[in-house]
Design a protein around this nucleic acid. Sequence first.
DNA 1: ACTAGGTGTGAACGACTTGTGAACAAGACC
DNA 2: GGTCTTGTTCACAAGTCGTTCACACCTAGT
Lengths: 276, 276
Amino acid sequence: MSITESHRVEQLDAGLSFAATPALRIAVVDRDTGFGTVLRRRAESLGWQQRDLTQVPAIDALVSMRLHALVIDPTLLGPQWAETIEYLRGNLPEMAIVVTTAPSSVGQRVRGIRAGADDWITKPCHPEELIARIESIMRRRKPAQGLTREPILAGDLSIRADQFQAFCEGRSLDLTRREFELLHLLADNPGNVLEREEIYQRVWGFQMAHGDRSVDVFIRKLRQKITLFSPGWDYIHTHFGVGYRFSPELPVAEKPVSAKAASAKRKAASVGKAAA
Amino acid sequence: MSITESHRVEQLDAGLSFAATPALRIAVVDRDTGFGTVLRRRAESLGWQQRDLTQVPAIDALVSMRLHALVIDPTLLGPQWAETIEYLRGNLPEMAIVVTTAPSSVGQRVRGIRAGADDWITKPCHPEELIARIESIMRRRKPAQGLTREPILAGDLSIRADQFQAFCEGRSLDLTRREFELLHLLADNPGNVLEREEIYQRVWGFQMAHGDRSVDVFIRKLRQKITLFSPGWDYIHTHFGVGYRFSPELPVAEKPVSAKAASAKRKAASVGKAAA
DNA sequence: ACTAGGTGTGAACGACTTGTGAACAAGACC
DNA sequence: GGTCTTGTTCACAAGTCGTTCACACCTAGT
């Protein structure tokens, strides 16, 4: 029983730090601007940002909005509404999709939810309930979302999220935003192999299209810039058929041997470098 | 638009393998046994396990049920219903909580959802909608994979899903992706004999063609690489006419009874000779 | 034992993945 | 309107890996 007790305490603690929903960005797609207005009053008092739209934007535009939730009336989507929801869900798996409609049939609701909607609310609907339901969905979010805000030190590099930039011995690597986000993601999971799909998903924000080489190209740019400032280290390692792994290592000219030998060589190399 | 198209197709593919929600365990707490009965018919046809209860069990009992979702009517919880939900949510953060009630006020719904309910459905409610909503909640959970993400220790090996690689005393076995996935699948079901068909299905992702020997070939490659790093252990065992079984065993030099052991010995001897 | 079919093994081909440079498109800024 | 920066797409080269095939060997039932 004491175990259960300690359980509870921990859980509640975790719950509290979670419950304080941070400011969310939502968009309302509806013809009835009145509903958006009412909702906005409540949302903004919570510090949320709300955007009112009269149609669903293109995926790229949606991505750049970095929404947490989309509130949508499917009557605006035409007969292909379910496919549209499926499409949105596929490309923005992190974004909550809340459907609001006039009274609907069970079949419609099931179809919408199966297509990827997180909730289906019948209008008229109290804004407070809508907000509570969005919070409920957000609560389920995988916490893996955020990356460290702390500076990351790896090899000769320091990666600073607060600056959106990486430095080597105080000098900026002059990374672009995407380059930095890619490096930050990799460096935040040192030693782990990240698949291309996941990288794309987390840096670009949507599903990777088949044959897209963007990740490879940015890896090349990253390696180029990093090598320029910090040669003598291998930071990004390719895993054939899988993806990339970040892990600062001294390239062993001879052959991959035991970790002990590698570390010895590392010491030697760094000494040599210091001397030079 | 062609990009968007290929996008979509992939999504549907991914969606399919996703949509097949694995068997869930749910419990229904309600006075109206009729609702539970109707729901059970649908749930069991999906392979779900359902348990009908007339009151909320103690936390320990709930924990041991390992439920994915709890469907509950708050009128059974008395005046402290919201606190009870909060308590459940705190102690079982992974479990979905779905509230079903007769028509209720906005205030009640908001309170219930804020307390931790994942959804609030008004009765009467179609079982299909309830199921769809539970699936929607489950969709937000990450893993979705059938395999463990935790490192697996077996004999001298450690198999790490996060690295897509197996190690023996810290040294990488240098497995390719397929090799690793095969080993991972086997090692995740230690002691179980997996049929070729199933292996192919789960590693390659589609139906095995008649006469396909890929599984055999990869088993050989695996055994080769594993033996290289960890001789002295038998990890993968052949079951004639069936498939393979993973189970780290120390081959007993004594028992010459089994023909299998004999052939293994012969093999080892010939390898040794070749090396010498 | 004998045989039919299942399994182990090695090698070779071909398909796919990745690295790389450069052209192209889209915005930001002056 | 230009120019610069940034991100995307293309084409080609160089590797890597997966599949297939042939053949030897083993198993199980007759």
